[in-house]
């Protein structure tokens, strides 16, 4: 029970943070929330269902481009556009899933297929002139739109609370899904899909639902990304580096746990920011220094706590959220 009190206190603290934090802290926290959110979405696939997707940037990018394109070309606002974004991402996700699982593609092969789809789309978007092609798509900033929160125009506070709401909503949804019948089916598929099939679980259906929910959720993150950054380049949004970035938080935090992606995002993003600050202060200005430390940190974490940081913390605090 004291777990829930702790969560409520943490949430209250995060709601109150903007009252005394400066813009920089807010912008870092927005990033933390973003990675926690997409991490939750990815965790449904890998953590619960055991399907390693290395191409989730595909759904971020599709969500971002669909919503931004509808806004620019049809004047449809993001609150409506997000539904189109979810639909497109879920449709592409289901094609990927269907192609793979119908033909029995598993494990490493599945992971590589997801990369292939993302790369294929990236190069394709480089040639779609209507969406800016390789030159990028920009959401213009007009003075008269400022403060139109219903069009996702506003200051950092708007995005801060929006991102916080996304994480909170996603976490609640994941916690509920984990205890649902579907959640238990996912875990059964992850642990032993043959045994699950023998017990009457429709393995294909369970995986497909995981893919649909995960890709749809990720697309919402993409809409957020588009309207927060207000510029999109295929080479940045769909790149493999983005897919890797997005899966680190749940892996570091703890795969298949509800709080792992959040803890992971709270560790990794500030770590990256601190490394930027440290290299800037030391005056040693070589590009790539931060990323080298980042890579070393990754190796250290996977070496020392392979099942993630959150299960390790939870054991010490006396919580019982182990990997189901």
């Amino acid at each position: 029970m004291h777990g829930r009190v702790l969560i409520a206190m943490l949430l209250a603290a995060l709601i109150a943070t903007p009252a005394f934090a400066d813009r920089y802290v807010i912008s870092v926290l927005i990033l933390v929330f973003y990675f926690a959110y997409v991490g939750q979405a990815w965790n449904l696939m890998m953590g619960f269902t055991g399907q390693l997707s290395l191409g989730h940037s595909l759904y971020v990018g599709l969500g971002a481009y669909v919503a931004a394109g509808l806004w620019l070309h049809a004047g449809i606002g993001p609150w409506l556009g997000v539904f189109a974004a979810i639909a497109v991402a879920a449709a592409v996700g289901s094609v990927t899933g269907w192609l793979s699982w119908r033909f029995g593609i598993e494990g490493v092969y599945f992971a590589l297929l997801t990369i292939a789809f993302a790369e294929f789309t990236r190069i394709g978007f480089d040639h779609i002139d209507m969406l800016g092609a390789a030159g990028g798509l920009f959401l213009p900033v007009n003075a008269e739109e400022a403060g139109q929160w219903w069009n996702l125009r506003g200051g950092p506070l708007l995005f801060y609370y929006l991102a916080l709401a996304l994480v909170a909503g996603a976490t609640l949804a994941v916690a509920w899904l984990r205890r649902s019948r579907l959640g238990y089916q996912w875990v059964a598929v992850r642990e032993d899909s043959e045994a699950a099939r023998a017990l009457g679980v429709d393995v294909f259906r369970a995986k497909m639902i995981a893919m649909l929910i995960s890709s749809g959720m990720t697309a919402v993150g993409g809409v957020f990304y588009a309207f927060y950054h207000r510029n999109l380049f295929p080479g940045q949004v769909f790149e493999m580096g983005r897919s890797i970035e997005l899966i680190l938080a749940p892996i570091v935090g703890g795969l298949g746990t509800v709080f792992g992606p959040i803890i992971g995002a709270f560790i990794l993003t500030p770590l990256g920011e601190a490394l930027i600050a440290a290299t800037e202060r030391s005056g040693f200005n070589a590009p790539g220094t931060k990323a080298v430390f980042y890579g070393a940190a990754l190796i250290a974490i996977i070496y020392l706590v392979p099942s993630g940081v959150w299960p390790w913390i939870a054991r010490r605090l006396g919580f019982s959220e182990h990997r189901q």
């Binding site: 890797i244 680190l248 892996i251 590009p287 790539g288 220094t289 931060k290 990323a291 080298v292 980042y294 890579g295 070393a296 990754l298 190796i299 996977i302 070496y303």
Partner: peptide
């Protein structure tokens, strides 16, 4: 993750 860490270190 291990080899991605190695790759990141090499590129950068």
């Amino acid at each position: 993750i291990l080899l991605v860490g190695v790759a990141i270190i090499i590129v950068n």
